[in-house]
Write a protein that binds this DNA or RNA. Structure first.
Lengths: 214, 214
DNA sequence: GATGTTAAGTTAACGCCGTTCACTTTTGTT
DNA sequence: AACAAAAGTGAACGGCGTTAACTTAACATC
């Protein structure tokens, strides 16, 4: 009947080696190096061969993104493990881990949250429980323990995500000192330091306390 | 002596028409449409001709960015005008204007704060007083008036910028409901609404008030 | 007004990109 | 050994940024 049977393991192996090559190229030379031809060269195969395993470049990149999200999740989980549940410190640690991941895996981060998305359907392959759920749970715990103001957890989590993400993307778009061209300033210049400096603002807000009726 | 003299006005006129074509293409079709060949087509000239006016594509894009920053500044100044100096409302209005600009000029925003910047030198052409200074001044005024906690103004301004920027870039990278896949949620789904929902968090912080010694 | 210099613009090409298609090689089963 | 399908190849298409050689147009000078 069937004169040749396909071995799924073998296929998966080849696919993995392609994704690996793509990942390494991305980490080494940024998104510019991530081309089908260069990936094929590194795998040791012609560019056309890649299309037997991935429908197009976008599908390949999607796989790379999936792997990056796994690594991202590791950063967050490691950070969460260092602080007790229900504490504000745990929430803070998650934020810092976000920036550590982004800093240490800049090329990954660029692709993960690429602002491109010309195609309105994307990132549907974010691991379900990945990252955000961890943050929301930390927020829920902190509210339950009484350390955090009782506000809708999703909202607080999104807020914290925005701060961390905003710091990082601003830092990637321009060197911070330049964008601010701070005279006299003394503002931290690395994303992580800056985020740490935001800590009191995040915790206590920008508004002056009301009881100052001096 | 010189058998032909160059008319600076004429040159500036042609340059302007090129930048205009580039801007329109960007607004119409996003960064993908912004190619030298398409710009040249729209101007009614060959692609090579553009290189008589701009060193390369990056230089042309830089001009487009410069124009976008001007429009951006208009949004901010208009917003600042609606609220009294020294008020927290003025600071809030600046944040909302940020998101309005980004929403109404998405293609501009994408290029303005493109995460690409493979070349580490860029955005040096941000108008000196553009945007950030306006925000910092609003913060300084609010501190002086006693409405805002007395913290280093640059730091507070960067913080507010991070929140607004973070909300927008997250929204551009993925539809918010998807990223959050909020069950039960009820979280706003547009960047502007989300930013408005953050207002109390920004003003009062996430930490539970201490006087709750019930 | 003819001349000569030079700005402005054109065409063609190079090397890159993603992608496709016709073709060849390899592979496993019968 | 024979065969059918899988796997891979090379060449090509159209698009990209950019460059180089060449043509055309404009103008100050004689």
């Amino acid at each position: 009947m069937s004169p040749r049977v396909v071995d799924p393991d073998r296929v998966a192996e080849v696919e993995a080696s392609i994704v690996e090559a793509a990942r390494d190229l991305l980490a080494e030379g940024g998104p510019a190096r991530l081309s089908m031809r260069q990936v094929a060269d590194r795998v040791g195969v012609s560019a056309a061969a890649l299309y037997r395993y991935f429908e197009n470049k976008e599908a390949l990149v999607r796989q790379v993104i999936g792997q990056a999200f796994l690594r991202f999740g590791e950063y967050l989980e490691r950070a969460a493990g260092t602080q007790p549940r229900g504490s504000l410190e745990r929430v803070q640690a998650l934020g810092e881990a976000y920036l550590e991941f982004a800093t240490e895996n800049e090329a990954y981060f660029r692709v993960l949250f690429s602002i491109q998305r010309d195609d309105p359907r994307a990132l549907e392959d974010i691991p379900e429980g990945g990252g955000f759920d961890l943050l929301r749970e930390a927020v829920e715990d902190a509210i339950e323990s009484g350390a955090m103001r009782p506000v809708q957890p999703e909202l607080v989590a999104l807020y914290l995500w925005s701060v961390a993400h905003g710091v990082m993307t601003i830092a990637l778009a321009c060197r911070i000192e330049e964008c601010v061209h701070s005279k006299a300033g003394g503002v931290p210049s690395t994303p992580l330091e800056l985020f740490r400096a935001f800590r009191t603002l995040v915790q206590d807000g920008i508004k002056a306390p009301v009881e100052e009726l001096v």
